[in-house]
Design a protein around this nucleic acid. Structure first.
Lengths: 219, 219
DNA sequence: TTGTTGAATGTCACTAAGTGACATACTGTC
DNA sequence: GACAGTATGTCACTTAGTGACATTCAACAA
């Protein structure tokens, strides 16, 4: 299990995150295969090869085991937004970056993306998982605050920044839910393989939800 | 405990909601006074005068006991929006209705509003309560879908309608968090007693978040 | 009044989520 | 190789939450 080195003062954040993700993968697989209620902490622990006690050291509750894998569904978009240079428009940057990622090694595996979509789907009917999904989106929103705050040269706890971040996070969530549902229904995958079109939809939605404040290049 | 009559086929929804609210009030009070972790199901049950088993018949989890009271923080706005006539602008309708409510009997007591704010405040540091708050906002969003769908003459599961509803719900949530925090910090209550100003802020935020689609009168 | 019916509640035993405490194993440093 | 600190395992324990069945209560009918 030891794959990465530890830095001074405890387990490195990176290693901790990797482990959480590993647990999350197994938990999500079990949730999907047999339902949340039918999956126990013992079962998750056994699947990942740890003691049950250790699971609860890394997650505060059973449902929250789904959060990291569900986050994988938005980390790509989030990291792309973090590298958004001030002189580019949202559409241009998104299109360029998503195209680049399509060719290079993808940052998140296809299997993980499927698991994330399955969890979001389950969240539609299982209240326990819905809380996990909403908490993941809440994290997204907090990260968007610093991104948008930086872009507008304002503190990230500024009210307007928070309002814009919340609106942006909300539309990203709905689009994610929509795309996930479509993919899982066996819909045409090609519908979402047109990168400029997809990037345009996200960009346009964010631009609209923030009243045009987030989208244009800034001086 | 019997206060309302039962209609055919079980407890009336109204009576059920009243009971849930009553439980929620006691739970919220205890959560605020001694923390969520230190409050047990038995304690909530005793405070409201029911058996513990009955608490779990009405709520799926301890944290969810906070949802109804937290919802009270937005029901007023939501009911005002539901009565929004097509020929009015959002600003006009909000101002008129909030003014009317200020004079007539308020639909939700001041004590309940304080409890709601306290729960939202706690949600900032207690993950367990944050899930309850986010779930309450999720309910708000679903109701906004039908309101916005009706206004735009579109089905409520239409993608654009869902996107607009999500953005609107998100900004309402942030404004609520902001106002709640300000009130609890002992800030000037008069800052929020200027009805036209307050209505204008909500209206403007919703209008912006929906790209101007929600706000104007419709033919 | 009395009997009947159906839903809400109470009681109690039980499962499972989650924690505290302490022993052990691992990992990097000297 | 000894040392120090952290992660993990083990086990007892608390408490959230459920299932099953008895009881109470409100409405309605005879």
């Amino acid at each position: 299990m030891a794959e990465t080195k530890r830095s001074a003062g405890g387990m490195s954040d990176q290693r901790r995150e990797r482990l959480r993700l590993e647990i999350s993968r197994e938990a999500a697989r079990l949730f999907w295969e047999q339902g949340v209620a039918a999956t126990g902490g013992d079962q998750i622990a056994e699947a990942v090869g740890l003691s049950t006690r250790t699971i609860w050291r890394h997650f505060r509750s059973k449902e929250s085991c789904a959060e990291p894998i569900v986050m994988q569904g938005v980390v790509t978009l989030l990291s792309v937004l973090r590298s958004w240079p001030r002189e580019s428009s949202l559409e241009d940057h998104l299109t360029a970056e998503l195209n680049r990622l399509r060719q290079e090694a993808p940052p998140v595996s296809h299997a993980d993306e499927m698991l994330a979509m399955q969890m979001i789907r389950l969240a539609d009917t299982e209240p326990a998982l819905r809380t996990a999904w909403l908490m993941a989106c809440d994290q997204t929103e907090r990260q968007l605050r610093s991104i948008i705050g930086g872009r507008l040269d304002r503190p990230e706890d500024d009210l307007d920044v928070r309002v814009h971040a919340a609106a942006a996070a909300a539309v990203i969530r709905v689009l994610d839910e929509h795309i996930g549902a479509a993919v899982l229904s066996g819909a045409d995958l090609t519908e979402f393989s047109d990168v400029p079109e997809l990037a345009g939809r996200f960009a346009q939605a964010i631009r609209t939800a923030t009243g045009g404040v987030v989208g244009n290049p800034v001086a």
